[in-house]
């Protein structure tokens, strides 16, 4: 029992240390990043690298999520003879919840893992120390453009994903449940208020901050050796997924009360 409590205490301590470390990195980045020069070139490069290169995965995931959800809802609504409500029901679930969260866990985790692996490799080959030794700030040079790019890239992917998911749902509604595509589209759009779109983008921005900061934090804290880089990458994917889900819950709670 005592050993279990000690283990629990150690676990809580490491979670607290990790949370503090990630929060501190984000805070320091906010303080140093916006200083001149802002580094627009680096940010644009990272947006293309992290965001645009995730376009294919975002399209695929969003399309399938839209189709799966429409099929599930359609099947359930058929029991109540309410298949005409397919557009209304799908809209809320996809825009408010499924597209931003799923993209954060797939495309976002890919971005975070890429950052952890890249920065981890730089750490073990002393490149991060070399940046500092040359009088530059590694947080400004490496963390700032990556976090800004994920905070920009993920919302853009979410906007795109929302559209693709709607098209996926529309396809299933028309082809499987015989709900006309235009009718699906009208009911889909009618159901959504501006706050739903805004909420979707705000969620994606917060998820982007989580993804970028956790990826960079694990990269910067990689121990020595190539095995450590793999370890950092795996930890990043797990941590990103958990944090996105927890943040999603908190944000949903907040938006529902608005």
């Amino acid at each position: 029992m005592k050993a279990l409590l000690i283990r629990l205490g150690e676990l809580m301590q490491s979670v607290a240390q990790w949370t503090g470390g990630v929060a501190r990195l984000f805070w320091v980045m906010l303080l140093r990043g916006p200083k001149q020069p802002v580094g627009l070139e680096d940010i644009a490069y990272q947006i293309i690298r992290q965001g645009v290169m995730s376009g294919a995965i975002a399209t695929l995931v969003s399309g399938f999520i839209g189709m799966i959800l429409a099929w599930q809802f359609g099947d359930a609504l058929m029991d109540f003879n309410a298949k005409q409500a397919l557009g209304n029901t799908s809209a809320i679930a996809l825009v408010r919840e499924l597209v931003p969260a799923t993209l954060a866990i797939t495309a976002g985790a890919k971005m975070a893992a890429g950052m952890a692996a890249e920065l981890g490799s730089m750490k073990v080959t002393e490149q991060i120390d070399a940046i500092a030794a040359l009088g530059a700030d590694p947080i400004k040079k490496l963390v700032w453009p990556r976090v800004v790019s994920s905070m920009t890239g993920l919302p853009l992917l979410t906007v795109w994903g929302n559209m693709v998911a709607m098209l996926g749902g529309m396809f299933i509604a028309d082809s499987v449940f015989d709900v006309p595509a235009m009718y699906f589209y009208q009911t889909y759009v009618e159901e959504l208020a501006p706050i739903d779109y805004l909420g979707s983008i705000i969620k994606a921005t917060v998820f982007g901050a989580i993804v970028g900061t956790i990826g960079c934090y694990h990269g910067f804290n990689t121990k020595f050796g190539t095995e450590a880089v793999g370890h950092a990458t795996t930890e990043t994917v797990v941590a990103t997924s958990i944090c996105v889900i927890v943040a999603d819950f908190l944000l949903t709670m907040m938006f529902v009360q608005l």
Binding site: M122, T125, E126, Q127, D129, A130, I131, A132, A133, L134, G135, D137
Partner: peptide, 19 residues
Amino acid sequence: LRDLRTRVAMVFQGGALFD
């Protein structure tokens, strides 16, 4: 510190070139 590091350079063991 930034100023110090412009006056004092360091050559790392593996070179630490930005790959």
